[in-house]
Amino acid sequence: MKEIWVNEVPVKETVPGYKGRFIHTANMTFAYWDVEAGSVSPEHTHPQEQVAKVLEGSFELTIDGETVVLEPGKIVVIPPHVKHGGKAITDCKLLDVFYPVREDYRSL
Rank of each mutant, 00 (worst) to 15 (best):
V77F: 06
K12N: 08
V40S: 01
R106M: 11
V54F: 10
A52Q: 13
V68D: 14
Y32D: 04
I4S: 01
M28R: 09
E36H: 09
E66A: 14
Y99V: 11
V77P: 01
L94G: 05
T25I: 02
G38Y: 03
T62Y: 08
L108Q: 15
S58A: 10
V69F: 12
F30P: 02
A26V: 09
E60S: 15
T67H: 05
K74C: 07
T25K: 04
G38R: 00
K53A: 14
G20A: 10
A37E: 04
Y105S: 15
E103N: 13
E103H: 13
G17I: 02
E3F: 15
D104W: 09
I89R: 09
Y105Q: 13
E8W: 03
P10H: 04
F30M: 05
V11W: 09
N7W: 14
I75K: 13
K12Y: 08
M1W: 05
F59A: 12
V68P: 11
K19C: 04
Q50N: 08
H46N: 01
V69D: 15
A26F: 10
L61D: 11
K83I: 15
W33H: 08
R21G: 00
E13T: 01
D91N: 11
E66G: 13
K12E: 07
W33P: 00
H81E: 11
P10V: 00
Y18W: 04
L94N: 03
M1G: 06
V68N: 12
N27R: 05
F22L: 07
G86D: 00
R21K: 00
S41C: 10
